[in-house]
């Protein structure tokens, strides 16, 4: 799972890691793991993927976890047959999201809660 960061000076929540807080420039953070509950903020269905993906109709989205961390991830929904809506509740897991020369790269995967 990803690690998120909370600034010890101002409380700003960040992901990914920054050496200085994006709000106050602070350098001390408390690290934590986002919850598994998230809601969808925006998404897209990609029909023309970059080199390295042998597929179409891949759904990516930006979510906000219940503990306020925001992240992008793969939304495991078939956009042709299943409903997808901004605001829908999702459950997060940590799974392979791409194969690079046979190596599995792990990332955030979301499914309808």
């Amino acid at each position: 799972m990803i690690t998120a960061y909370k600034c010890k000076s101002c409380g700003q929540i960040m992901y990914p890691y920054h050496y200085r807080c994006i709000n106050c420039g602070g350098r001390e953070f408390e690290s934590f793991v986002p919850s598994t509950k998230a809601k969808l903020l925006t998404y897209t269905v990609i029909e023309q993927l970059p080199w390295g993906f042998d597929e179409r109709g891949r759904v990516l989205g930006v979510v906000e976890f219940s503990n306020k961390v925001r992240a992008m991830g793969l939304i495991d929904i078939d956009a042709d047959t299943e409903e997808i809506n901004i605001g829908m509740k999702l459950t997060a897991t940590w799974e392979p999201v791409r194969d690079t020369y046979g190596e599995k790269i792990y990332g955030l995967v979301f499914r309808p809660a």
């Binding site: 990914p16 925006t42 990609i46 970059p50 990516l60 991830g73 990332g107």
Partner: peptide, 23 residues
């Protein structure tokens, strides 16, 4: 794109623009 938080998922610039456009 951000390597660990965006690029790995297969995001393209049209995909970022698509997510932005929807909002």
């Amino acid at each position: 794109a951000q390597p660990e938080a965006e690029y790995i998922y297969g995001v393209s610039l049209p995909a970022l623009a698509g997510m932005f456009a929807r909002l």
